[in-house]
């Protein structure tokens, strides 16, 4: 990858965005793009939505890492859905060799407490698992198991709290092993090895949330990677056509279009012509809005990547198309 790309030297890619912007799709496309470059990549979800398994049309993911696909380049893509209870048990086992006490904690309701109610502890466990996967090594040479980890993170409204949760915890737990773990995780998240990519649509609210999140992430000591603009529609009409429609040269245009329609045997050409021009007028409005929002994003001076709207949906190879776009635009 080019040294100027926001992925240079990054081991943990965090992908967030307003709900409905397609952050899971973008996270998957990014992970696939990395895998197609010969890397071993882990794609992680933390909200148990089973978004990854649905996208790749595989069995639901669990707390075990499974291989989603192998690429001819030698790269591979793995998937994981982190489950807080399993993460807590794994953590207790690893650090305390707790057999009986783990079961006791569960019985006393402590596991439920830790994973659903305790402030931030659930998030700490989820990130803790991601942190473990990023740093995991194998063999005598201590080679990294994964070249990159891509995290499908909570939406922008909650991501800063999610990523900052270790800081918050550190204020509560002033010492002890959880404190130490929290400090190491914060160090990884705030290092250059971690970047947060923001996904947005060219609509007012997603863009506003994207800009707000960028400011919050920066204030939280986190590094923003790229902004991925999703579902961009190609201008179907030429600039001249757009101008004609926008300038209200409609009556003359409507007649001309109706004539053209009639020549290819379309029934009710006048009615269809009026419909097409109304659609075009909406299209112009939408393009104006998009241009306005695009300017706000460009003004941030960040790397911006554009993914096309796949009118047939993201099934059936759509992720591959998006992955190739990200590679072509040198996001990876």
């Amino acid at each position: 990858m080019p040294s100027t790309s926001p992925s240079h030297g990054v081991r943990l890619h965090v992908v967030t965005g307003k709900g409905g912007t397609g952050k899971t799709t973008v996270a998957a496309a990014l992970a696939l793009a990395l895998a197609r470059q010969g890397r071993r990549v882990l794609l992680v979800e933390v909200e148990d939505r089973q978004g990854i398994s649905q996208l790749f049309d595989i069995s639901p993911l669990g707390h075990e890492e499974v291989q989603i696909l192998a690429d001819p380049s030698g790269g591979s893509l793995w998937g994981l859905s982190v489950e807080p209870k399993a993460a807590l048990m794994e953590y207790l086992q690893k650090f305390y060799k707790l057999g009986r006490a783990g079961a006791l904690l569960q019985k006393a309701g402590a596991v439920d407490f830790a994973t659903t109610i305790a402030p931030g502890l659930r998030d700490v466990l989820l990130i803790g698992k991601v942190y473990e996967a990023v740093g995991r090594t194998q063999g005598r040479a201590k080679e990294r198991v994964y070249d990159a980890v891509v995290l499908d993170a909570p939406p922008t409204g909650r991501v800063v709290r999610f990523l900052g949760v270790n800081d918050e915890l550190a204020q509560l737990a002033r010492m002890g092993p959880i404190r130490n773990q929290a400090d190491s995780i914060t160090a990884l998240l705030q290092s250059r090895a971690t970047v947060v990519h923001l996904v947005t649509l060219l609509e007012e609210m997603p863009v506003q949330e994207c800009l707000d999140a960028m400011a919050e992430l920066a204030a939280g000591g986190l590094h923003v990677g790229g902004i991925v603009v999703n579902e961009v529609r190609d201008p179907v009409l030429s600039d001249d056509d757009l101008d004609a429609i926008a300038s209200g040269a409609a009556p003359e245009l409507a007649d001309r279009v109706a004539g053209d329609l009639e020549s290819v045997g379309i029934k009710n050409p006048d009615k269809v012509s009026a419909i097409l021009l109304r659609e075009a007028s909406d299209h112009v409005d939408r393009l104006d809005l998009q241009a306005e929002q695009d300017q706000r994003i460009q003004a941030q001076g960040r790397a911006v990547f554009y993914l096309p709207a796949l009118s047939g949906g993201i099934e059936a190879g759509g992720i591959g198309v998006l992955a190739d776009e990200l590679t072509t635009q040198e996001m990876v």
């Binding site: 179907v236 009409l237 030429s238 004609a244 001309r256 053209d260 419909i275 047939g312």
Partner: peptide, 26 residues
């Protein structure tokens, strides 16, 4: 219809409008 009109430059606008409609329909 858009394909049938595509070869005639003076009808390009109508072809484009039809393609836009096809996108929306998809």
């Amino acid at each position: 219809a858009a394909a049938a009109l595509a070869d005639e430059p003076e009808r390009a606008t109508t072809a484009a409008l039809l393609r836009l409609h096809a996108d929306l329909a998809t």
